[in-house]
Design a protein around this nucleic acid. Structure first.
Length: 638
RNA sequence: GCCGAUGUAGCUCAACGGUAGAGCAACUGACUUGUAAUCAGUAGGUUGCCAGUUCAACUCUGGCCAUCGGCUCCA
């Protein structure tokens, strides 16, 4: 009959009968582990999967990345089962795992609300207690289509129709069954620690022309403790939400009178302007020239640039009131590039002039859809550390290098060790041949490799006029926001008929590179606040030193000390209120002021301060001169 | 824009068909202070806006606005 096969578990070879399940083998030979799945010859499969040939078998524990994903995916199934038993007539669609959890999209008779979640959770717990076996079932495509059709699961039918394979796998638990590739945990009792977190609308297949489905988000962990820890971290992340910090630190606010448009208070404006000053210093080193351009242009400009067709729905249109028809014949700029093209065109250019690097902190306005606005990270009024480089085709690589070096310098200086680079490649709607595109994409990819950056592809996410490098930074809740960008543009020079005279006295078309390093300043400040929890580097702190007086007796000295510090060029104030020191310290700590200089009668007599650092050392006695030296030694990023 | 939720004093929240209340902040006074909240008093609101139901609406209904979580879009 069947001869024995050789399975390797934990480095030991065992002869066994073929057909025995991976789970059974692990139970026998890998004692003490409690896997959720098995890895057979490198492939992760159900524990129930029979092993029919020589194999190396390893346990996949719930703590591993793959195990956790299986756990969450199985929890998504559990949730779908609970939902369908509680809300008859609800169709299932898809339910993938995501970073930190999972979701499942349903087509219910009425959309779910958060009030439904506790009910669903308790149903899920019931199903866990029932210890339902999770079984893999394979069947032919047509058979599966007939099955789901009989269950009135039209979305599943649509999904299977899109699957090329002839056989598909389904998973059954109790009387519930779902199309799924798997693998899954062997039984519902493996799912102990889960929580449903939120509901949301989501379009079928992510297309807003399709039906709006009802999505439920949740998360699952191997243990109660791990789940609690996760929820605790989420709570802490919410404490460093930039919208909350902005209010607490008195940096900015929003008013319904200008949706999506932040008001920067004096302290917020200091951060804003310090960042601009920083970038200006960099510009001097990197060879950029700052310009100032108009805010409002006749629509003719947008027709020429292509924004009229591509971006008009996001533009604020206006008029000077002089045209008799009352037509909106002007547009407020959403981007700086067209005016820079106009500036380039304002003079005859030679190859000797190139590259020309025009930088512009001009204010931009974009009519973002109301539902997309989000604190400082998604606004309608903004400024970028924007620049456009006009260069010859030969100069492209060097210019990309220059900007990548600048990106590296800035993000290192500001303590972002977690930037992510992506290469946005040719979109469906594009100008130019595929061959040209691949060449240009390779130029960007090569530059990133040359500069030692890892990057991922973002397929089809390039601009219609050229590929782009996108740089992302996460916020406190790990949501990624694009900040810096470097984009090649072969279209705008064409549209504006830009030219330069070559060394052979012929006319040639320059290439345009759109780039921003901080990106949108509003967004950058938002992620910077979340990244730092509001504890900004000294040079960015709106208030750098606060002198705290101990009593009225030292008021004059405290005032004098603060004035001296201010005169020396630092942002300082004195807190002379009739309050206890602990109270003033607390307020200064909450305001995230880097240095607190405490002065009492002792200090006044010796012209000293007792220095306290934000969230750091205290009671450091210093003379006023020593304090000034210490402040002067605080580093600028450049 | 779409789905769901929320909107009460400057901030954080309570009350819930019978003309709104706390803590902090503000203001006044006392205290004269040693490294994350001294005490007392005063003032502050057409409960986001507009309609409707009702003898009576912060509370119920509808519309609008804004915000939050997502989707779509995107820096």
């Amino acid at each position: 009959m069947s001869s024995e096969i050789r399975v390797t578990v934990d480095g030991v070879v065992h002869p066994v009968q073929p057909g025995i399940s991976a789970g059974e083998l692990l139970r026998q030979f890998a004692n003490g582990t409690r896997p959720v799945a098995a890895r057979v010859n490198g492939k992760v499969v159900d524990l129930s999967r029979p092993v029919s040939e020589d194999a190396t078998i390893e346990p996949v524990s719930a703590d591993s990345a793959e195990g956790l994903e299986i756990l969450r995916h199985s929890t998504a199934h559990l949730m779908a089962q609970a939902v369908q038993s509680l809300y008859p007539g609800t169709q299932v669609t898809i339910g993938p795992t995501i970073e930190d959890g999972f979701y499942y999209d349903f087509a219910p008779p009425r959309p779910f609300t958060v009030e439904d979640l506790p009910k669903i959770e308790s149903k899920m717990r019931e199903l866990v207690k029932a210890d339902l076996k999770v079984e893999r079932v394979e069947m032919g495509r047509e058979e599966a289509i007939a099955l789901f059709d009989s269950m009135h699961e039209q979305y599943k039918v649509e999904i299977i129709r899109g699957i090329p394979e002839e056989r598909v796998s389904l998973y059954r638990q109790g009387d519930w069954i779902d199309l799924c590739r798997g693998p899954h945990v062997p039984s519902t009792r493996y799912l102990k620690a889960f929580k449903l977190t939120s509901v949301a609308g989501a379009y079928w297949r992510g297309d807003e022309r399709n039906a709006m489905l009802s999505r439920i988000y949740g998360t699952a962990f191997p243990s109660r403790e791990a789940l609690e820890e996760h929820l605790r971290l989420l709570e802490m992340a919410r404490a460093r939400d930039h919208r909350k910090l902005g209010r607490e630190m008195g940096l900015f606010f929003f008013d319904p009178i200008a949706p999506g448009s932040p008001f920067f208070l004096p302290k917020g404006a200091i951060i804003y302007n310090q960042l601009i000053e920083y970038v200006r210093r960099l510009y001097r080193r990197y060879g950029f020239e700052e310009v100032i351009t108009p805010q409002i242009f006749k629509n003719q400009l947008w027709r020429t640039s292509g924004h009229w067709d591509m971006f008009r729905e996001h533009m604020f249109l206006t008029t000077d009131g002089e045209n008799p028809a009352g037509e909106l014949d002007y547009g407020v700029k959403p981007m700086n590039c067209p005016s820079h093209a106009v500036m380039y065109r304002s003079d005859k250019r030679s190859y000797r002039d190139l590259p020309i690097r025009l930088a512009d902190f001009g204010r931009l306005h974009r009519a973002e859809r109301s539902g997309t606005l989000h604190g400082l990270t998604r606004v309608r009024a903004m400024a970028q550390d924007d620049a456009h480089i006009f260069c010859t085709p030969e100069q492209i690589a060097g210019e990309i290098d220059l900007n990548l070096r600048m990106v590296r310098e800035v993000y290192e200086a500001l303590g972002f060790g977690n930037i992510e680079l992506k290469l946005g490649t040719m979109p469906d709607k594009h100008l130019g041949s595929e061959e040209e595109w691949r060449k240009r994409e390779e130029v960007l990819a090569g530059a990133m490799r040359r500069n030692g950056f890892d990057f991922e592809l973002n397929p089809g996410e390039g601009a219609f006029y050229g590929p782009k490098i996108e740089i992302y930074v996460p916020d406190a809740l790990k949501r990624k926001w694009q900040v810096a960008t470097i984009q090649l543009d072969f279209n705008m020079p064409e549209r504006f008929d830009l030219e330069y005279t070559t060394s052979a006295s012929t006319q040639a078309r320059p290439v345009m590179i759109h780039r921003a390093v901080l990106g949108t300043l509003e967004r950058f400040i938002g992620v910077l606040l979340e990244h730092t929890g509001g504890v900004l580097p000294f040079w960015l702190a709106p208030e750098q030193v606060r002198v705290l007086s101990l009593s009225e007796k030292v008021e004059d000295y405290a005032r004098e000390a603060a004035e001296l510090i201010s005169r020396t060029g630092f942002r300082a104030s004195a807190d002379l209120r009739n309050e206890k020191l602990g109270f003033k310290v607390r307020e200064a700590e909450l305001a995230r002021i880097p240095y607190m200089a405490v002065v009492g009668e002792r200090e006044a007599a010796s012209r000293m301060v007792s220095l306290r650092r934000l969230r750091g050392d205290k009671n450091q006695p210093l003379t006023l001169d020593a304090l000034l030296e210490l402040l002067k030694a605080e580093p600028l990023p450049c």
